[in-house]
């Protein structure tokens, strides 16, 4: 049983470490809210989608499919394909979730995003494993910012300057790139990473509209190569 003060400080630390990612997500959230309301989503619909799906690229793709008239099923499949990579993230959150009561597991997986990888990495750089409450604090802040920024975009819906003019659309890309040096564990990572990147590249060239599956296949191929190699 943890002392409440430890729980509280872990939650706050997680929220603090999430701030840069939350900032990057906010620009994306405003953009989604804007697009959604222009595509005929009501305020409540945009809000619900951000709260329930909690994945920017998946939401944008589903929105795109709907407005293209592809139908509900196609929109769900396309969005789910992009969110499929979160399966790999909750899998790697295992040690923080295991042996927790069911409702904490239910909440913990709900808050898992790409940014959770960043949090786990930040904790690791500090020499500790990311704890449950640390991930919860970060995830809760991100969800809050995500839903709030979606609402702002949905309400304003016009008159916002193009974020691309300020390079803000690059913020999320920069976050992922900045994670790479910390994730690099040494030369044994080289081949798995090349396989992951190469698989995505090849897949996207062959099937440009199936990027979500390419991501999943790339990450899994890299992990398989790492698993099968023996120079541990």
């Amino acid at each position: 049983m943890q002392a409440p003060s430890t729980t509280r400080s872990e939650i706050l630390l997680g929220a603090r470490d999430m701030l840069p990612m939350a900032l990057a997500a906010a620009t994306y959230g405003v953009a989604f809210g804007l697009l959604a309301s222009q595509s005929g989503f009501s305020f409540l619909q945009s809000l619900s989608m951000s709260a329930m799906v909690f994945g920017g690229s998946a939401q944008l793709v589903a929105l795109d499919q709907l407005t293209a008239g592809a139908g509900v099923a196609a929109a769900i499949v396309a969005g789910a394909a992009l969110n499929m990579r979160i399966l790999l993230i909750t899998a790697s959150m295992r040690s923080a979730l295991v042996q927790r009561p069911w409702w904490q597991i239910a909440t913990g997986v709900y808050l898992a995003t790409d940014a959770s990888v960043a949090l786990m990495q930040t904790a690791k750089n500090r020499g500790a494993l990311a704890s449950y409450w640390y991930l919860l604090g970060g995830g809760a802040l991100l969800l809050l910012v995500w839903v709030a920024s979606t609402s702002i975009g949905a309400v304003l819906s016009q008159g916002i300057p193009d974020p691309a003019r300020f390079g803000l659309d690059f913020a999320i890309v920069a976050v992922f790139i900045a994670l790479l040096p910390g994730l690099w564990r040494g030369r044994s990572d080289l081949f798995p990473w090349l396989v992951a990147a190469g698989t995505v590249a090849l897949f996207v060239v062959l099937f440009p509209s199936l990027a979500g599956w390419g991501l999943l296949l790339g990450a899994i191929s890299g992990a398989v190569v790492a698993g099968l190699s023996h120079d541990n």
């Binding site: 790697s92 790139i177 798995p192 190469g198």
Partner: peptide, 29 residues
Amino acid sequence: LALRLPQSGAWARGLDALPGCLIMALVAL
């Protein structure tokens, strides 16, 4: 899924490498 995977050997090595490979794949895309 992770609960059912072995904690050591090839599966664990693969699972450990997963975050790096996923972010690398995202960046490549």
